[in-house]
């Protein structure tokens, strides 16, 4: 998630992404790629709305990374920093993104403000979107997978007024590799997929929604315990009355002691 197209450009180019739409937000992706970039526009409201919009495309948790520029009183322009805490300057609410994924560079606090300013807080970066980004994206994914990386674009010596799109892209470009590596680390943390089982046909049995959930849960347990033969021996069919299906599966599971030498941790 970026606020500006010029912040996103180095990654759009690197991954060869194509613009899919520009309303309500710019969205870049490409067939078969597992990355997409959404450009929200400036400010908290725009960022929160864009995250909500992008989040609706996927059911499963994903990695959410906010990339953008930030100001800092005395950090060098061009320096890259991970956000380790964020404060909303309006209501002083704080958030500490869990720092589970290793990041090889520096990290810093950030304050999110409403409007561009030349008054820099002590010991923290400053931007206009981070807090909203964290709040919104954490509703779609575990907080460990929601991270923000900032590149310093202005400081007390050189205010934000000197910036333009080309300069911003030039500030972001040297950091493509380190950010990509970080994204890979984050992807490595994604929780595993749901347990699959091979008895989907039984789920077509006539039953209520909650009975189907129970049946599915029992079949998943049977799959985890490697009970293919035992389930097969029960001779269950989709036409078997649901109460019988559930009872037989429960009875079989209750007696099936796990084998622990299968290395199935």
């Amino acid at each position: 998630m970026c606020a500006l197209n010029c912040e996103a450009k180095p990654w759009v180019d690197h991954f060869g992404l194509k613009k899919q739409c520009d309303k309500p937000f710019w969205r870049y992706s490409k067939e078969g790629a597992d990355i997409e970039i959404v450009v929200s526009g400036i400010g908290s409201l725009a960022m929160a709305t864009a995250v909500g919009w992008a989040g609706a495309f996927f059911e499963r948790p994903r990695v959410w990374l906010n990339l953008g520029i930030a100001g800092h009183a005395d950090m060098m322009i061009g320096k890259i920093c991970r956000v380790h805490s964020v404060i909303n300057a309006n209501d002083l609410r704080k958030h500490y993104p869990p720092l589970t994924a290793k990041w090889p560079g520096d990290s810093s606090a950030i304050a999110t403000v409403n409007a561009p300013t030349n008054s820099y807080p002590q010991g923290a970066m400053i931007d206009m979107e981070s807090h909203a980004f964290f709040q919104a994206a954490s509703t779609f994914s575990p907080a460990e997978l929601v991270q923000s990386i900032k590149v310093i674009s202005d400081n007390q010596e050189q205010s934000f007024e000197h910036l333009n799109a080309a300069k911003i892209t030039a500030l972001m470009t040297p950091h493509v590799a380190i950010v990509n590596e970080f994204m890979q680390t984050l992807i490595g943390l994604l929780p595993q997929r749901e347990i699959e089982h091979s008895w989907a046909n039984l789920l077509t049995a006539r039953c209520t929604h909650s009975q189907r959930q129970q049946l599915n849960a029992l079949l998943k347990k049977a799959s985890v315990l490697d009970l293919q033969n035992e389930v097969g021996a029960l001779g269950l069919k989709p036409s078997t009355p649901i109460n019988v299906l559930l009872e037989r599966l429960q009875g079989m599971l209750a007696k099936s002691a796990p084998r622990i030498d299968r290395g199935n941790v």
Partner: peptide, 24 residues
């Protein structure tokens, strides 16, 4: 990282114990 109260970090929402266990 200096904090006021540990609950701000420890009890915050949307955390995943299993993910964090990889690098607490």
């Amino acid at each position: 990282i200096e904090i006021e109260r540990y609950g701000e970090v420890f009890n915050s929402h949307s955390q995943n114990f299993r993910i964090q266990k990889q690098n607490p």
